[in-house]
Design a protein around this nucleic acid. Structure first.
Length: 278
DNA sequence: AAATGATTCAACCGCACCGAT
DNA sequence: GATCGGTGCGGTTGAATCATT
């Protein structure tokens, strides 16, 4: 029973890649393109699992990867996107051209978590740490934050509730007060009342603004017939999230980057809630 | 200079999903 | 509708590197 393993483990290398392996992989993909990772190792003469090849290529060898430090702007964007999407690293990475999900995940765990903690924010909920447990009378948005995905099983469709259920076309998150930039746990935002008091963010989602990228033409029709989405692979039932985020145009929106295999039409998607229309 | 602890990040693992059959 | 193979994602691990004593 069960599935056959993705590769014959007894005959595959593991661990760090050598330069020779890298060159083989690069050479093969340059010649034949990505795709069919399962058969790639054999075709390329690599004693590696297909998944390992894919990971190496995606996270390290791809020519369009941006190496080097994250800027403060990157940090803030990641924080905002994490507040909206939770641990959906691939979606977050979709908004940071040249960055990989793995890189962002690592960066989050090693840097941004600490940064938020230093601000007195809970990196999971994006709420002030001391006020978090005591918070009551939560708004929709703060409910969304409190249900954030530390739970691996949390369906993606449940995550960005702040977006999904926002009663108006604009969702505003409280801006952290200057005094928060330290150890303040009083959290100026906690007294902001109904305006998403616990999400210490500065993220305005004005859906009435001029849209940076058009929603996919096929999405509305598909979305109109969808049922409850259960996962994040929703190209048939999704719209471009850039569209809703109001991400600046051009490079930031990588929605239209299709994978060589043509699986992904839009790279940055969010599932539609039932009954929701564009 | 050596030992120890902390941090970083590439890589692995298991699972879930999609498309094909 | 059920099953299977391929792929992608998120969580975790562990070796390498850095900082401190």
């Amino acid at each position: 029973m069960g599935r056959s393993p993705c590769c014959e483990k007894a005959h595959t290398n593991k661990g760090a890649w050598t330069k020779e392996e890298d060159q083989r992989l690069i050479g093969y993909i340059k010649a034949h393109g990505e795709g069919c990772w399962r058969s790639l190792p054999k075709a390329a003469g690599l004693l590696r699992c297909g998944k390992s090849c894919r990971l190496r290529w995606m996270n390290y060898l791809r020519p369009d990867l941006k190496r080097g430090n994250f800027t403060d702007d990157d940090d803030e964007l990641i924080i905002k996107l994490h507040a909206l999407l939770g641990n959906k690293w691939s979606l977050i990475a979709g908004q940071l051209p040249g960055r990989t999900d793995n890189e962002i995940k690592n960066y989050w765990n090693t840097h941004i978590k600490r940064k938020l903690l230093n601000r007195g924010m809970d990196p999971h909920t994006h709420r002030p740490i001391s006020a978090g447990a005591a918070a009551s009378g939560l708004t929709t948005a703060s409910n969304a934050a409190s249900s954030f995905p530390s739970s691996p099983a949390a369906p993606a469709s449940r995550l960005p509730n702040a977006l999904y259920t926002a009663p108006t076309s604009t969702v505003s998150f409280a801006r952290p007060s200057p005094s928060d930039d330290g150890h303040s746990s009083s959290g100026g935002s906690s007294s902001d009342g109904p305006r998403c008091p616990d999400l210490n963010l500065d993220l305005d989602l004005d859906l009435s603004m001029s849209l940076p990228c058009s929603p996919p033409k096929t999405a509305p029709a598909a979305a109109s017939t969808l049922h409850t989405p259960q996962h994040h692979h929703q190209q048939k039932q999704s719209i471009c999230l850039c569209y809703h985020l109001g991400v600046s145009n051009g490079a930031a929106c990588t929605c239209k980057a299709a994978s060589p295999a043509g699986h992904r039409v839009f790279r940055f998607l969010r599932p539609m809630e039932e009954g929701q229309y564009i």
